[in-house]
Computed example of a mutant assay.
Amino acid sequence: MEQKLKIVIVEDEPVSNIYLKNLIQETRIQHEIVKELDCVVDALAYFVANPKVDLIFMDIHLGDGTCFDILNTIAIDTPIIFCTTFDTYAIQAFKYNSIDYILKPAKIDNIRAALNKFLSINQSEQQNYLGRIDQMMDSFTPPQFKKRFLIKENNKLKIVDINNVNFFYSKDGQTFIVEKTGCEHPVDYTLERLEDLLDPEDFFRINRKTTININQIFSVEDYFNSRLKIKLQNNKKDLDLVVSRNRVKYFKNWLKGVS
């Protein structure tokens, strides 16, 4: 019987965690998720106290810091597959027993290739793995985010530059883009799809129905039930912009540049 691969997942977004576990399952590689961790503090405690596992899937940004806070504090010689939204840490990540660096949203082919790479690399090859980083990085393609939207209105086409977007919202199954001027237009994207298309450094989905532009925030106020209320510059639409309670922590991290 094939021995199961013992895996630890370090990921603070519940949705991303479930998505990753489903992709690993789809590869049909025999494995066992022995632990799921969502913050630096818990990860440090776990890796100090527990025996070595075979492989770690690790996000870069966590709720209370980055994975490098873990890796620079304790020695972890377990191979790591990094899964993150940002391409800017790729070189740094490969200093830490890295097998692969996958950009979110990961695809089944990405996960399968990374796991097969791990299974095919023996210990001696891992020690020489850093020597192949430059070759890997030459083929590394950073994500491309939308710079503009093409809007059709009354048989005319209008271009809306991403820098002129105040926020996006959905209503009755339709998504709308709201410009700084207050003009709004329907777009053929769901908010879920927009999360993949928009630069996460500039745009954040504060609740199920709204995604805002950080450059348009005028103020952030405490709101009842441990939520936050956002006021945007030039917002002429009568729409409450409230950060959901379960996203407040991630929103604050995003404001600080560590989302």
Rank of each mutant, 00 (worst) to 15 (best):
D87R: 07
I81D: 06
T141R: 09
D100F: 14
C83T: 08
F82I: 12
T85M: 13
S139L: 05
N97D: 02
F86Q: 11
F145K: 02
L194E: 03
K180W: 02
I74N: 00
D109T: 10
V160Y: 03
A114F: 09
R208P: 03
D69T: 02
I121W: 04
E195C: 06
D188M: 05
K107V: 02
T181D: 12
V178R: 03
I159S: 08
S120I: 09
A90C: 10
V160G: 09
F204A: 05
V187L: 01
T84S: 11
L103Q: 12
L115M: 09
E192A: 11
I133R: 08
P186V: 09
F167M: 13
I162H: 01
L119S: 12
D87S: 15
A93N: 01
S120E: 12
T211P: 06
C183F: 06
D64R: 06
N97S: 11
E179A: 14
L130G: 08
T181Y: 01
T88F: 00
M136K: 14
D138H: 10
E201T: 14
I151E: 05
P105A: 02
T181G: 10
A113K: 12
Y169K: 04
K117I: 09
E195R: 09
Y169N: 12
T78C: 06
Y89F: 15
N163C: 01
